[in-house]
């Protein structure tokens, strides 16, 4: 009994840690690769259990960012990426501006 309750509280602690992490990323710029090879850059606004991600002021790039080719992005605005189409997620870690 005691062990069980301990497990739950641990799980809760863990949960809130996950949430905290996600919340910390909110309103940060994210770069998402999709299964079809396109890359989206936008502000992380929302997510759920199925990893569906909503990006604001989103821009779409056709080529891989590593290719180095200059490419004009297409403006999408508010876009939702279904979790099953996520390949990778990167967060922009801007150094704190003084």
């Amino acid at each position: 009994m005691a062990g069980e309750s301990k497990n739950i509280s641990e799980a809760e602690e863990e949960k809130s840690a996950g949430r905290k992490k996600l919340e910390g990323w909110l309103n940060k710029t994210m770069r998402i690769r999709m299964t079809d090879g396109r890359t989206l850059v936008g502000v992380f606004l929302c997510t759920d259990k199925d990893k569906n991600v909503i990006l604001g002021s989103c821009q779409e790039y056709l080529k891989l960012p590593e290719s180095g080719e200059q490419e004009d992005p297409r403006v999408l605005g508010l876009a939702m990426v279904p979790g099953r189409h996520l390949v990778s997620i990167e967060v922009d870690q801007q150094p704190e501006i003084m």
């Binding site: 996950g18 949430r19 992490k21 996600l22 990893k51 979790g83 997620i89 990167e90 967060v91 870690q93």
Partner: peptide, 15 residues
């Protein structure tokens, strides 16, 4: 950029 794919997937599955 900092890759957070794994972290993100894990964190989101807790929701």
């Amino acid at each position: 950029w900092q890759d957070v794919t794994e972290e993100f997937m894990e964190a989101a599955s807790e929701l």
